[in-house]
Computed example of a mutant assay.
Amino acid sequence: MSELKVAVITGAGSGIGRAVAIHLARAGYQVALAGRRLDALEETKKEGGALASNLHPIVTDVSDEGSVNALFAEVVRRWGRLDVLFNNAGRGGPPVPIEDLPVDIWKDIVNINLTGMFLCAQAAIRIMKSQTPQGGRIINNGSISAHAPRPFSIGYTATKHAVTGLTKSISLDTRAYRIACSQIDIGNAATPMTERMTKGVPQPDGSTRVEPRMDVNHVAQTITQMVSFPLETNVQFVTIMATTMPFVGRG
């Protein structure tokens, strides 16, 4: 890896993306902050404090091919290379029975959680293959739901299962170009997205229970460790979760 280290983080305006961005900036990366809301990206930059000069907001809609291509073109224009893509942007859906989920919401979940990851990976691979030195690292945000669904989560669960296929295909098809692809499956990190768990969430047995959460910075520390390895070493899959959350043996 060259002395200049460059990372792209999608969904960088809040939660996991924000925490990872700040940790990678601390590790010396120039970080492109990708997300749909400039005000949220600017807040991530502000929270970086003394690291703000390493954090660069770039408004991006990952579900739009033109917007994604513009993001990665800007990365090349500014820095001439790309070392890390953290494919983090995603959304859930309303907790409703399968037959009541509107098709337009289903399509939006697929467009962001799956097509968006594909588009970003595609653009990153093009850069990583052509740069000198060749290669880089792609980390896809899977989720505990890549293994076990929550009640009434078909859109989120189906796309997170699909992310595993995406990860495996990227790993296989790009290994000749020194591209390492990983998946991180995260359970109950303390972010605004999981705030509802402090009040109770539906369980498979029909009950509603409060679930424990973990510090989101532990996710960021894990990713920082993953990207610190040489490209000859890959953490193919990693699960990080609140120790006592109902995952193994759900509920």
Rank of each mutant, 00 (worst) to 15 (best):
I112Y: 01
N113K: 01
V110R: 00
D104Q: 06
V84D: 01
V84C: 01
K129T: 12
D100R: 13
P95K: 13
N111R: 14
R78E: 06
I109F: 06
I109K: 02
V75G: 13
R126F: 03
V110L: 10
P102Y: 11
P102Q: 12
S130C: 12
P133A: 06
Q134K: 15
M128C: 08
C120F: 03
M117Q: 14
N111A: 15
K107C: 08
W79F: 14
G90R: 00
V96K: 02
I127S: 07
L114Y: 01
P133K: 02
V84E: 00
A124L: 00
F72E: 07
A121W: 14
L119Q: 08
R81P: 10
K107L: 14
D108I: 00
D83G: 08
I127Q: 09
I98K: 03
V103E: 12
S130D: 15
L85C: 03
T115K: 10
I105N: 03
L114H: 02
G90P: 13
S130R: 14
R126G: 15
G116Y: 04
A121T: 12
M117F: 09
P94N: 15
M117I: 01
Q131A: 08
G92H: 05
M117H: 09
L101E: 11
F72T: 09
S130M: 11
P102S: 06
R78T: 01
K129C: 14
N113R: 10
L119P: 05
F118K: 03
G90C: 05
G135S: 03
L101N: 01
I112L: 06
I127K: 00
F72Q: 08
F86T: 01
G136K: 04
V76H: 00
D108L: 13
I112A: 12
V103F: 13
R91A: 12
E99D: 08
L85K: 03
V96C: 02
P94I: 11
Q131G: 08
D108Q: 15
E99P: 00
N87M: 03
D104N: 10
V103K: 08
D104R: 07
R78M: 08
A123T: 06
F118W: 05
M128W: 01
F118Y: 13
A121V: 06
A73R: 10
N113F: 02
F72P: 08
P102N: 11
K129S: 11
I105W: 09
T115A: 09
A124M: 04
A123L: 11
L114D: 01
R126V: 07
G93S: 14
N88I: 00
D83M: 06
P102H: 11
G116N: 12
N88A: 04
W106V: 09
P97E: 15
V84K: 00
G135T: 08
